[in-house]
Each structure stands twice: as structure tokens, then as C-alpha cells.
Simulated assay, not measured.
Amino acid sequence: METLQGLPEVHANLDSWESAASAGDRGHGAQIDLRIAGKAFTLLIEAKKAVYPRDVREVLWQFRDFSPSRAVGAGQEGHEALSLLVAESISPGAKDLLRTERVGYYDSGGSLFLPAHGAYLYIDRPPPKALAKAVRSLFSGRRAQVLHALLVRHQDWFGVKELAEQSQVSPATTSQVLTELERFDWLASRGQGPSKERHLRDPGALLDAWVKQLASVRPAVLRRYYVPAIKADQLLERAGQVFAAHQVGYAISHEAAAQRYAPFLSNVSQVRCRLLVGPAADAAISELGARVVNEGANLAIIEAKSPGELLFRERVGDVWLASPIQVYLDLLGGEGRAKEMAEHLRKERIGF
């Protein structure tokens, strides 16, 4: 009500809290009499706590089941009945679907959409903090390992146990992630109970959502080194040999890896690598003759705390490269032509 009343040439009155529908009609939760620049409308409110794409179909059915002509005042001359979904949080995908169906919505973040004949209101604001935090946690830590597995093997069907093993996380965490993804309508499912399997319906949408979260993720800390008397291509091979000799887990990423997957640049000046930290890693770096520098680095190390950060790496020639998904995400946080290279990699190697 405060949002509506704060708009120019808009007058709103809460007409009723309870449904005015007749017997057998599901009705609505509340009703608002609205005037916009002299035009009269009746808002029929459906209230929810949180709405995701999966929930939109139910909301649409509820609005369609209720006959707007039975709303109090809707029969008055000049009144147009409009459906409006009010929720604490509405996910971006759900908002897109509601706009497509021309159903109004309002969330606690202040976003408002109200399509009407002769009056169109659209306020787009950041999602409420609770929703933003929930989505952000989905793309970080061990939960992100589950997403990584789904994207890398997006053509496969998974049970919870199998996906947990692939992701190197607990079945409980895997199940939680799958439940969240189903809310966004990104998964298809088959079977019931313990034999239930899921399949990533739209890998491109999931990857796009991950990209949107990158801006809120703290960039990885780089340890910068200079290895003398060696070119980047040679350094890539040399680093692979030394890390293997010291039995250190690693995965080359960024431009050096993308160039191997899908050549794009004429040359690469720096090798960036995820490396499992520890005494063996320190010994390997020492054997390379690498010295710490602030500028002019040709080797940058991203410290990996667990093997899960090296998931789905691929052996190309004699070196281990981070998965194309990981390389793509890393490049989007880079500088120079890294973003162009990321899009080239996505088109040529990832494919969705």
C-alpha cells in the first residue's frame, strides 16, 4: 500500500482482507481499490512467502480459478480487475515468467509490476537480502561442486548418491542443492523415492545464473611469481612436469588453459594455476626457480584448499587443465581480453 500510494497520480485503498468469492470459487487473499490517473482498477491479491519459477504455474492456476467478475467492486462501471502476486521474495526467473503472462507482482525488495490497460507500472529493484543470500550460497563452497558436476555432465541423469560421489560432497548437501535447483525449474526428474533421478534441463540458464553471482564473490588471491629465462608455453609444460614430480594436485586455468581448449590469442604471457597448498607445492615452486614479484609475473598461483577445487580437470597433452566450466568462470573475472576469450571458449568448447 505504501509503495502504491507513493507513486504520482495513484490512489489506493485496502478494500477487504478476506475473499469475496462465492461458494466453490477459491477466491483471493485481499483486495485493493486502485485509481491511476483517474482510471479505476480492482487489485486481487494472492500472498506467498517465496516464489520460484516452479511456483508460478500454481499461482497462475489460482488466478485463473478465481473469476475476477466476482470481486467486490469489479462489476462497477469502469473497474478493471487485475491479479497481483505479493511475496516476501520472488526469484528473477519467476518475475520473468509473471511478466510474460502479464501477471502483476510485488516483493519486499520494492519491485513492482502492474500491467493494465492505460496504466503500466514497473519498478525493478535488487532482490530482498534473504533471497540474494540464499542464491549466493548456492554458488559457493561445496554446493558449487554439485553445480559443477551437473554442468560438466549435463546430459546425464543422476541419483543423489551418485551425484554426491561425483561432487565429493555429502548426500545431504547434494540433496539440498537439488531441492533448490528444482525451485528454479532447472531440473527434470524421473522415478520416486530412493531411485529418483534428476537431469539438468537447462545448463545454459544455470551457467548464466552462476555468472551473475561472480560480481558478489571475492576474487581469488593470486600469489605472483616470475620464472626467469622461459616463455609461457614452455613454462606451462615445465610447471606440469615439476608439479607431477612432486605429486602436487594442480589445474592450469585462465588464458593458458583456454588457449589449449579453444585457441583465440596469438600468444599468452602468463600461466595461472590452481595448486593444492602444502610443503610439496612449496618445494615444486622452489624447483621452478620462481621468485615472488609484484609486477611482471609470468606465473600466478591460486591456492586450492581441497581436491574439490580441482574437480573435473582434464589432461591435455602432458598437463592438467581446469575444466572448461571453471576456466570460463575464471576468465570472466580476468582483465584485458579475458572476457572475449571466455565467450569464445563457451561457444567453441562448452556449447551452451
Rank of each mutant, 00 (worst) to 15 (best):
R198N: 01
A256D: 05
L222P: 03
K231C: 00
W157I: 10
S195P: 00
V242K: 10
Q259G: 03
F158A: 03
A229V: 00
A172C: 01
L222S: 08
A209N: 03
P219T: 05
A172W: 11
V221S: 12
F184M: 09
V242S: 09
L265I: 05
D202W: 06
A244P: 05
R224C: 10
Y225C: 00
S189Q: 12
A239T: 15
L235V: 01
P171K: 08
A164S: 15
T174E: 08
K212L: 10
D156R: 15
L178W: 01
P219N: 05
H246P: 04
G249I: 01
D208S: 14
S269V: 02
L276I: 11
A172L: 15
G193R: 11
L276W: 06
H199G: 03
V217R: 07
T173A: 13
G249R: 11
F158T: 03
F243Q: 01
G240H: 04
V211C: 10
Q166V: 07
L275Y: 06
R274F: 12
A205C: 02
L265Y: 01
I230Y: 01
W210I: 03
I230W: 00
V271N: 04
S175N: 14
D156I: 07
K161C: 01
D208Y: 06
E165I: 02
Q168L: 09
G204S: 09
E255L: 14
D208H: 09
K231L: 03
V211S: 02
V177L: 14
K196F: 12
H154D: 03
Q155M: 07
L206C: 14
A245H: 10
S253G: 08
P263C: 01
V248P: 02
R218S: 15
V271L: 04
V277H: 13
Q234P: 00
A220L: 13
D156N: 11
Y225G: 05
V177S: 13
D208P: 01
L187P: 08
H246W: 08
S195I: 07
E165V: 13
V169K: 03
A172I: 11
V242E: 09
L187D: 12
Y261G: 05
Q270R: 13
A164T: 12
A229Q: 15
Q192V: 07
L200P: 06
S167Q: 14
V177K: 13
L187R: 11
Q213N: 12
T179C: 03
Q247H: 09
E162P: 03
H254L: 08
R223C: 13
P228S: 11
H154I: 04
G240T: 06
I230D: 02
L222Q: 14
Y261H: 11
Y261L: 12
Q247T: 13
A172F: 15
T179G: 05
E237M: 01
P203Y: 12
S266L: 10
F184P: 02
S266C: 00
R198V: 15
S216N: 12
Q192M: 13
A209M: 15
D233M: 05
S170M: 05
Q241T: 02
W186P: 02
D202Q: 10
Q166L: 14
E165G: 12
G278Y: 07
